[in-house]
Write a protein that binds this DNA or RNA. Structure first.
Length: 560
RNA sequence: GCGCCCGUAGCUCAGUUGGAUAGAGCGUCGGACUUCGAAUCCGCAGGUCGCAGGUUCGAAUCCUGCCGGGCGUACCA
């Protein structure tokens, strides 16, 4: 048995074959039939615009096409009560109320696998995200990228892709030297040397903490030792310590990576040089004014880009080219990069880069995540990275909790800026969407707890026979069932569009239906048959809530 | 100047990739706990989808031009 929407789709797909055939369309390119749930119930349970989209290629009146489709449909018994042709040529399907019950059986049968989609077909996908420079702790913007990337990866994995999560460590370049120098000066300072802390260095408190720690560990070993002699040691110490902190913060945020990729390895293994050679062989590299340029304009970039500077040093972009070459050499079919939106100017050249390396533009998907405005009770919180005054991700998680933070990050499209209000995130009220959903889950669990106390049997929870679902006749009940049946479709669309926020919106809608239903009806009532059927519905709801929250990396509590 | 993103209810945002009469939450106001969790629910009000054209059976969605906001525009990373 398949879900309702798939059964309708199958009927439709079969029905249009002879029509396309007689219209001269080959079976090779059957039009994609779409099924939507209409906003207005008068338009049926499902609606298809297939007749309308066929008008163009068949050059026929849509209502006539619709009539013919209906004529060709094989109506199985007890499934569809009627099909109407409406408006310009919509097909409106009205489902036999009793047919919905099968949907619930599907949910129970698949349980924690419910929603699983076989659309990835094992294709290898890498999601690279966060990738913050190890020069300071993660801030709230990184948190948004972390949540987005982590959930996107989870969705893709659940949709049948072989997914790897990767963090690119920018541990090369002069920013790391700056970091090392910053620590050096703070260290000398900690030993009582008067230091004129230079501009453009990292001023955060965390550097002073590192300096104190270093002083405890090595004492005066580096006291007054010239900077040049010891800079690599300071850089390594600071970089390692900060990266360890980043890992810890991400771990607390529920984000785990399969791979931590260090930029330094690209340098040490000559990967950058080799990448430039490859591009040179493809005639995409030329020399001008002492520098080597990549001809990114050949692929639509607005100007060519330097890969090796006149001073002989390669650019960050060159390393990034080598990095992406490496990614594809590792066998990924698709690579997804999640970047802060302030890097959007970089997108075109990167796409040009992978094209020049022989990949399709669509093999690299770049998702831009907009900035987060941190607020407290509606007022902006000062966030000056330069001066080192910023609220770290760790502080935010400590204050509002992992679940609230993750959920709020996922309640917006990633290319929409997000106001993150610390006070709202802490509020245990309707202002805070995460509690709305978690509350529903806890409430469902509580119902089963009460059922257990009252001795209501639920053998079907442990593999026993399913209850008779015929008592589920209320419009609200059918509405909930219908929406549970949409869950796989929501996942598929989230995977296809790379938009995790669709899941949180779905959850909010689903949970709203449940809360409303709950307030008007009793699950545990006097009628044992009705009670069984409603418990079965409640259990299916709990399954979907738990599955979806798990994808979001948000806890599904039994009690709150 | 050029490029990218965004303009939808008082506020914050969705809108199933071009579908039918535009959707939530917050906020305002008014209601619902002797009951399985009131962290919930029910109701009222709120719109020229920034503006103007174009594409077609059909546009918040696509194309063009304006207006307004954000970001970017390094031989930095």
């Amino acid at each position: 048995m398949a879900l309702m929407r798939n059964r309708i789709l199958e009927i439709l797909n079969k029905a249009i074959v002879p029509i396309c055939h007689s219209g001269g369309l080959s079976d090779q390119s059957p039009p994609c039939v779409e099924l939507e749930i209409p906003k207005i119930s008068q338009h049926g349970d499902y609606a298809s615009n297939i007749a309308l989209s066929l008008t163009r290629c068949l050059k026929r009146n849509p209502r006539e096409i619709a009539k013919e489709i209906v004529k060709h449909m094989e109506m199985s018994e007890g499934l569809i009560s009627k099909v109407e042709i409406a408006g310009p040529g919509f097909l409106n399907f009205f489902i036999e109320p009793g047919a919905w019950h099968q949907e619930l059986v599907e949910v129970h049968a698949q349980a924690e696998k419910y929603g699983y989609q076989e659309i990835g077909k094992g294709k290898r996908v890498q999601v690279e995200f966060v990738s913050a420079n190890p020069t300071g702790p993660l801030h709230i913007g990184h948190g948004r990228g972390a949540a987005t990337g982590d959930v996107m990866a989870a969705i893709l994995a659940f949709c049948g892709y072989a997914v790897e999560r990767e963090y690119y460590i920018n541990d090369a370049g002069n920013q790391m030297d700056t970091l090392g120098r910053s620590l050096y000066y703070r260290y000398q300072e900690a030993l009582g040397e008067p230091v004129d802390f230079p501009d453009g260095h990292y001023q955060g408190d965390y550097i002073m903490e590192l300096a104190r720690d270093l002083t405890e560990e090595v004492g005066t070993r580096y006291h007054k030792v010239p900077l040049d002699e010891v800079l690599p040691d300071f850089t390594r110490y600071a970089g390692d310590r900060i990266l360890a902190g980043i890992r810890e913060d991400l771990d607390n945020f529920g984000v785990r990576f399969d791979q931590w990729f260090s930029e330094t390895t690209l340098h040490s293994q000559n990967a950058i040089q080799r990448t430039i050679e490859t591009l040179k062989a493809n005639r995409y590299i030329y020399e001008q004014e002492g520098a080597l340029w990549f001809r990114s304009t050949a692929f639509g970039d607005e100007k060519d880009r330097v890969v090796v500077r006149a001073n002989g040093l390669s650019t960050y972009f060159a390393a990034d080219l080598a990095y992406h070459k490496d990614k594809f050499e590792r066998g990924f079919d698709t690579v997804i990069d999640i970047w802060g939106a302030d890097h959007h100017g970089y997108v075109e050249r990167m796409l040009a880069g992978i094209e020049a390396l022989g990949r399709k533009r669509s093999d690299l998907q770049i998702i831009l995540v907009q900035l987060v405005n941190l607020l407290r009770a509606g007022k902006p919180v000062a966030m000056s990275t330069r001066a080192g005054e910023f609220v770290t991700l760790r502080e935010v998680i400590d204050e509002v909790g992992k679940d609230a933070a993750r959920y709020i990050f996922l309640t917006r499209r990633s290319d929409s800026p997000l106001d993150f209000d610390l006070e709202v995130a802490k509020m245990q009220s309707n202002d805070n969407p995460v509690y709305y959903v978690q509350y529903a889950h806890a409430r469902l669990c509580s119902i089963f707890e009460v059922a257990r106390e009252r001795g209501v049997p639920c053998e079907w929870l442990n593999g026993g026979a399913n209850p008779d679902l015929a008592p589920l006749v209320l419009p609200q009940e059918l509405e909930i069932i219908k929406m549970l049946g949409e869950y796989p479709e929501i996942l598929a669309s989230a995977a296809k569009t790379l938009e995790p926020h669709r899941i949180s919106y779905y959850l909010n809608e689903l949970v709203a239906l449940f809360h409303s239903y709950y307030n008007q009806n009793r699950i545990l009532g006097d009628d044992p048959d009705l009670t069984q059927a409603r418990l079965y519905l409640a259990a299916a709801l709990r399954i979907v809530l738990a599955n979806a929250l798990s994808l979001l990396g948000v806890n599904a509590p039994e009690k709150m």
